[in-house]
Structures are given as structure tokens and as C-alpha cells.
Design a protein around this nucleic acid. Structure first.
Lengths: 340, 340
DNA sequence: TTGTAAGCGTTATCAA
DNA sequence: TTGATAACGCTTACAA
């Protein structure tokens, strides 16, 4: 029966008005302790829960956050969604998940959908929500006129938009530089995304060469455009480069699965890792532990980022002034695929 | 401005009553085409969207499904959540994600929470929501008195509870039997969960021995209780068994990460896979492609299950009579960690 | 400190 | 085919 109870029923049983019940429910201070107890007792006794829709209508909020994510089956994005949901839940917010795929129109459509649901905020997981076109990100700016927009791993400067990210530029630069310093000049950079974060990583790779004053070979920057599950595709992609005569002593990648593909390539060609080929992944996912040898990878502090993102979000929602951009540093986790 | 528009505004501009606008909005047939057009034009012109909360209050539904999942950062569960969300979205349902962790009380609490939000249905992802105790599943039965409850990969018989699952028993039995038939008698069975599906797999392993009329060695059934990310833990777990004198010619596992740990174990001990040790994983995840050699694994048709689950759910919600249990068959995907 | 009553923006039931 | 109007169950001025 508890489900069907309304605030009227409770008020009647407690012998008070619905306003008083509402005050008790919302922790208003203007209630006599005695009255509060009386009402609470009835509420507990009947297990009464206020109707969420009615409350939503009154408050214009159901304490719900929209989580936009291109593909939550992706190892990395799935973890992000998980951490964000957990932290939101701890703060008594619900999460509406919305997987958009990588199509731009779909992303915009999905954001609109969430807005029409009156979510309290939207968090966009992954830098692929940033569009590299003139006005391409207006859809974000517009959304931010209504509710705070949180970006994970993306950088976009607009009012009411908050960014939490990892310094992918520096992390990639550092990894590349370490290799260069160890005397390896021909490093293949393998990436699969031209998103904001993807560009930063690439720039980090390039900048390492600049900093070390070494010449860069454009052919050593290669983009794999297959799926994030297609490790075999990665392997044959590299094989093709190799067969075409491209040579390299190390491979730095933008994602772990690319690194795994690289390791497989080495095995197929009896190239010894790390002796003759060093390989660096990115994300420090479980994949680094599956391959042989275990793979060096960049930990970009996903959990820390997610915790911080939710902190910032809750702060914003409760009216505190929050920093618009928070940047974490990545960390190279050294395993057996490198000797740096 | 479109956000602030109400049905009253539209009705005024269109020169009709709100009832008519509502009818147009809900596709009622009793509207003169001319009137409908007039109203639609205004709606389009102002980009009016009815307020979701008010609608929820009126209809007692916001077209939202609760997705319960112990840990959506788990490779397998993440995929399930992804597929389910996509299919629900295609049917114009929203998904509220709720990661409960593995604590039973928490699960019950989370379910209650979703019920109090008046979700239209709840889908429980993974068989760990089934409690092996007397009355342990009453919380599910109770929920099902209010809304349909969908179970993925679990079997529980109660009114308004719908199960979609894979025949894990048979899949494990088949894999084990293949090995037995090839002349291997000592097969280590490595598992990490005593959930419903976990038990089925174990029973399948045992049944293979029965069927083949071979004696079973209890020591060859081992439960690893670490995290699903702790591949190194798995490796040392097996190492310990080995050091204690346990011997086996094959390892059948209940999850891919266990299989990967097994492969690592073999490498560490210079045991040749599959020649001297055959290894079978479960779930056919990306992990099977990361290890060396690539791992044979059971594909339990997760995507098909999810598609079917949502179909059943939508059917139920629209008043069709739906089957309470749908069972898919797993399929052994042979790779290089076995020679069967 | 408490109660009355007016919203909130829909849907749905009646009449007309 | 339409229009009034009463729910829906809450929050929140405003009064008392």
C-alpha cells in the first residue's frame, strides 16, 4: 500500500496539513520537533515515499544527470560511466545513460533529448563530443545556457561548461621523449581518433621531436580507422606498413588496443619486444596485462577525473563557484614492453 | 523560449483549447485534419516540447527503464548495459543506470530506489541478482507485483518476471566434453562466481565427466575470489595450485580473464599452449585476442540476448503476452589455445 | 509554528 | 470534433 499513499493520506493520519508533511519531508527547520516526530513516525510506519513525478513537477528537477557517451561498450568509456554513476549516486543523483554513437547529428539529437527531459546537468564522456568546425560546438554552448555541462577529457571554453581532463599532450610527449632520449629515433605513432584528446596526444608526440631537436618523419604518424575491438585489424595494418618498407624501433599508441595489436605484430614477425621494438599503450587498461609481454601504458587517472568531475558538478548545482577547468597529469606505468 | 512554452501558450496561439493540443500531441484520431495541422504548425514553429515531468505525473510514466548492474566497468556487464540501452532508446525508452556493487543489501536498496522513481520496468543484468537463500529473491517477486522485471542471464520463476539467458550449462559441458573426448582427463575448472550462471557452468563441467563416465577430482574445481581485473592474481593462484602438486592438461574457465591468467601461468612455466595445456575462456571478449596464443572461448550471444530481452520487455509493456523464459545456445569459438 | 490555497503542465473525463 | 475542468501529488507563498 505504501506505494499508493499520498501526502494527503499522511497528513490526515498525522493530523497535520500537507504543508507540514512537505516541510518534514524536505527538512525544513520551521517544524516543531514534536510535530516532526509525529509525522516521521507515520511516514516510517507506512513506508511512504513522495511521488517522484509530482516532486519533479514542483521542483523542476528529478535529481537526474544525463550521461552522454559515444559507446559505453568501449573499455575506457565504460569505466568512466561507471565511476561517474557511482559518484553521482553517492550524491543522490540518478544517471540517465545515453549512448550516442559517433555520428555528430545523433549526438546533438541525444543532447536535445536529455534537455527535454529536464536533467539537472549533462556530462559528456570523451572528447569526441567536441566538433572541429566553425560553430560546431554551439550545441554545447546552447545547452549550457540552461544547465551546467560537464566535459570529461575534453576542453571547451564557454560559460557554464566545466572541463575535467588529463594532460594527454604532456603524457604522450613524455613517453615519446623518453624513447628518443634512449637513442631511438624512428618511433611509429599509431592513433585512431582525431578528437580533441587525439589531437593533443599526436601533438605531444610531435612536440617531443621538436624539443629533442630531431627530424620528424610524417610516414611514422599513422591513423588506424577500424573498430576498437579489431585487434587483428591493427596487426595487419602495421604489417602492411612494415611490408611497404616502413621501419621503426618503437611504437607509441593512443589506445591500449593499438598497442596490443602492435605486440601481436611483433610476435608474428619474430621481432623481440622490447629489445628490437618498444611499445607504449594508452589508458592503462586490463589489456596491458593480457598481452605478452605486459605493456607499458599511460595511466590517465580516469577515476580521479571522474571523482573530481562529480565534485565540480555537485558544487555547481549547489551554487558554489567552481573552477571551469581541472587538469590531471598522466603517468607512465612501465611494464615489459619497453626498456625506458 | 521554446523551453518555457506550455500547452496553454500553444493553445492560445493556435486558437484552440489545451485539450485539442493534447490530442494532437498524443496522436488522438479525433481531431480534424485542418485543426491538427494548425496546431502542429504552431508546435513546430516554436519548437514546443511538452514538459516531461507534468506528463510523467499525468501518465504515471516517463518511459524510463531502470538498469541494475553490479559493476558496469566489468567488460561483460558493460557490453550488456550498452546493448540494452541502445535497444531501449530505439524504442523511445530512457535508461536509468544503477550500479549496485555485489552487496546484497545494496542491491535490494537500489531496486527500491528505482521503484520509487516509478520506472516502467527494471532489468537486472547478470545472474548475481539471484540470491541462493530461502526467500532471498522475494525482493524481485515483490517488485514484479508492480512492474515487469527482466533478468539477463538469470533464471527465476515468478509472475511478471521474464528471463533471457544462455545455456551456460550446456556450453560448458560441451567444451569440457570435447576435451575429455580428445583424451584429456584432468581438466582444471576455474571459476570466480557462485551466482546462478556460475553454478550452471560448474554443473556443466561436472556433467561432462558424468556423461563420459569418468571420475571427477574435486581438487580440480577451483574458485578464484579476486577482482575481475586481477589477472596477475589469477596467475599466481594457479601457480600455487601447481606448486602444491596439482596437475592438469587443460583449464576450462568461467570468464575470459581467468583464461588469460591461465595462459600467463603457462608462459611463466614454459608450458606449451595448446600442446601441453589447453585453455578455454568464457564470454568471447576482446581479451581472447590480446593473449598469446589467442584464446578459445564460449560466445554466449550477449547481443542477441539483449535484443531479445528488450523485445520481450516492449511486448510486455504494450500488453502482449510474452514468453517468460528465452534460452539461447552458447557457441564455442575455437582459437589457438586449444586443439579440440 | 502551522494551515490554506495557488500553482506546476500535463492527461482524461465529460458535456456540448 | 471540440472545450471546460477535474485530477495527478507535490512545493511554496502567504496568512494566521
Amino acid at each position: 500500500m505504501s506505494n499508493q499513499m499520498t501526502i494527503y493520506d499522511i497528513s490526515k493520519k498525522a493530523g497535520v496539513s500537507i504543508a507540514t508533511v512537505s516541510r518534514v519531508l524536505n527538512g525544513s527547520s520551521n517544524v516543531k520537533p514534536k510535530t516532526r516526530k509525529k509525522v516521521m513516525d507515520i511516514i516510517d510506519q507506512y513506508g511512504y515515499k513522495p511521488n517522484a513525478f509530482a516532486r519533479g513537477l514542483g521542483l523542476n528537477s528529478m535529481k537526474t544527470i544525463g550521461i552522454l557517451c559515444a559507446d559505453s561498450s568501449d573499455l575506457y568509456l565504460a569505466k568512466a560511466v561507471y565511476f561517474i554513476e557511482r559518484n553521482l549516486r553517492e550524491n543522490e543523483y540518478n544517471s540517465v545513460l545515453c549512448c550516442t554513437g559517433y555520428d555528430v547529428e545523433n549526438k546533438k539529437e541525444s543532447l536535445k533529448l536529455l534537455l527535454s527531459q529536464h536533467v539537472d546537468s549533462v556530462v559528456m564522456v570523451g572528447s569526441n563530443f567536441i566538433i572541429n568546425e566553425d560553430g560546431g560546438n554551439d550545441y554545447i554552448k546552447e545547452a549550457a545556457e540552461t544547465i551546467p555541462v560537464m566535459l570529461l577529457n575534453a576542453d571547451y571554453d564557454a560559460p557554464n561548461v566545466y572541463c575535467t581532463l588529463c594532460d594527454d599532450f604532456k603524457a604522450t610527449q613524455d613517453a615519446t621523449e623518453s624513447l628518443l632520449k634512449s637513442g631511438i629515433d624512428d618511433i611509429l605513432y599509431l592513433y585512431n581518433s582525431k578528437s580533441y584528446s587525439g589531437q593533443k596526444k599526436l601533438a605531444g608526440y610531435q612536440n617531443a621531436y621538436m624539443t629533442m631537436d630531431k627530424e620528424i618523419n610524417k610516414d611514422l604518424q599513422q591513423c588506424f580507422s577500424g573498430s576498437h575491438e579489431d585487434i587483428e585489424g591493427v596487426t595487419s595494418f602495421i604489417q602492411k606498413l612494415w611490408d611497404d618498407g616502413l621501419r621503426f624501433k618503437a611504437i607509441v599508441t593512443s589506445e591500449d588496443f593499438l598497442g596490443v595489436g602492435a605486440i601481436k605484430f611483433a610476435q608474428n614477425n619474430n621481432i623481440s619486444v622490447p629489445k628490437d621494438l618498444q611499445i607504449v599503450g594508452y589508458n592503462d587498461s586490463i589489456l596491458t596485462l593480457c598481452c605478452e609481454p605486459a605493456m607499458t601504458s599511460v595511466n590517465n587517472r580516469l577515476e580521479d577525473m571522474c571523482i573530481q568531475l562529480v565534485k565540480t558538478l555537485i558544487g555547481t548545482l549547489t551554487g558554489s563557484e567552481m573552477p571551469q577547468k581541472i587538469i590531471f597529469s598522466g603517468e607512465l606505468v612501465k611494464r615489459d614492453s619497453t626498456s625506458i
